[in-house]
Simulated assay, not measured.
Amino acid sequence: MITSHPTRARTDDHPVAVAAGPEPSGAPAPRRGLTLAQLRARFTPYGFLTPTGVLLIVLMVTPIVMVVQYSLMDRVITNKNPAFVGFQNYLEVLTDPVFTVAVRNTLVFTVGSVVAHFVIGLAFALLLNTPLLSHRVKAFFRVLYVLPWLFTVAIIAVLWRLLLNPNGVVNYLLGTFGLTDGQTQWLSDPSTALGAVTFINIWSGYPFFMISLLAGLQGIPRDLYEAARVDGAGWWGQFRNVTLPQLRPIIVSMALLDFIWTTQQFALIWMTTGGGPITSTEMLSTFTYKLAFTQYDFSVASAAAVVVLLLSMVLAFFYVRHQKARD
């Protein structure tokens, strides 16, 4: 048996010292302190984010915490010594019949608006992307179709209140063609008010879908359409098997965003009908506003605001989840 010494070796009968090997790989390396340059490089991004973080805390987190706190108290602001009542304010909101009406109106208003925004926006986007029209004609219609998106909510509300007036242009045209008697109270009749404000919101919001879908259409490779035509697909087959699948991520993202924004629509409703007549156009936003600044019941209004916040967070969760899946 031949054995070797770990630190000695023999050459020409003379012992020669052999250097010891390196330390085992499992041994911990000596820890060195971070230099000033390394610390600066590590914390510089946080320095840039600090102003935004402070603004978010002051302008978003703090008000939300205050509203949640108010919703658990009794008669805050108007009462010097408000008492803790727990979830009583939430019970009062959820059992209020006007709240049920507001939820139903909000769903009708939102679903109708989002579906119409998609249909109209897609139709106009396809029209503006067709090779059958010249560039000048398409440029003219692009400017024309995007005009509703350039107006502020106040201008849109005043404009349509004048147009839908009993003596306005809409009644005049409908009466001239014999479609109505020409004296319809579009915004004052409970049977037509919700449909009227939904139509106004559709008119003012479809350019958001149109512009987004037009950008998506222009990004679809032409090779896909050529391959579809080679396979014998007509215009409907190309639309169903090429256009819609390519636009699906944009459609889902825009629909979720539009749903969130439309459920929180307040200015347009308030400046056209104020939630009336009676409760025919009462939305969650106007319902909460009236609780706070008409009835001065800030505790119940805070509870209603928290309910709306939770519903919005559910929609936001699905939107963020879809964006992560898309990425």
Rank of each mutant, 00 (worst) to 15 (best):
L49E: 12
V308G: 00
L56I: 13
A301Y: 00
H117G: 02
L309K: 01
R136D: 10
N105A: 02
P30Y: 10
P221M: 10
H135P: 03
G216M: 05
E23T: 11
I64Q: 11
S191H: 14
W186M: 09
L247A: 09
P15L: 14
Q246T: 11
V169Y: 15
L162S: 07
D96Y: 06
G53N: 08
A292I: 03
P221E: 12
I220C: 08
N201S: 09
F287V: 00
T52P: 04
V61F: 14
R75Q: 11
F318W: 08
T130E: 10
W236H: 09
R8V: 12
R40S: 13
S253Q: 06
P28V: 10
A325H: 06
L56P: 01
Q38M: 07
G47E: 15
I250N: 01
V54W: 08
V101P: 00
T50P: 10
F259T: 03
T52R: 14
P277W: 04
P245R: 15
F84I: 05
D74A: 08
A9E: 11
D327F: 12
V61L: 15
S191L: 12
V85K: 03
T50Q: 13
I120T: 00
V16S: 07
S204P: 02
V252L: 03
G276W: 04
G26F: 03
T263F: 04
V137S: 09
S134M: 11
I156M: 07
L132I: 13
A9W: 06
A139L: 14
G112S: 13
T192Q: 05
T50W: 14
P97L: 15
G47N: 13
I200M: 10
I77Y: 10
T50A: 15
Y90I: 04
S113C: 08
M283H: 00
P45D: 06
I120E: 01
L163T: 00
W203F: 08
F318D: 07
A227I: 12
Q69C: 13
F118R: 01
V314G: 03
N105M: 02
I202P: 00
V153E: 13
R136E: 14
A125G: 10
S280L: 05
V115F: 06
L217F: 03
W203N: 08
V143F: 15
F239T: 01
V197M: 03
A255P: 04
A83P: 00
S25T: 10
P30F: 12
P22N: 14
W236E: 08
Q265P: 01
G216R: 01
W186Y: 06
F141P: 01
T272A: 06
S285F: 02
A123V: 12
A116F: 01
I2L: 14
Y206T: 00
L39T: 04
F259D: 00
N79Y: 11
P63D: 13
T100K: 12
P166C: 04
A196Q: 02
K138C: 15
R326Y: 02
G53A: 15
T272P: 01
L315K: 04
A305C: 08
V101G: 08
R31S: 13
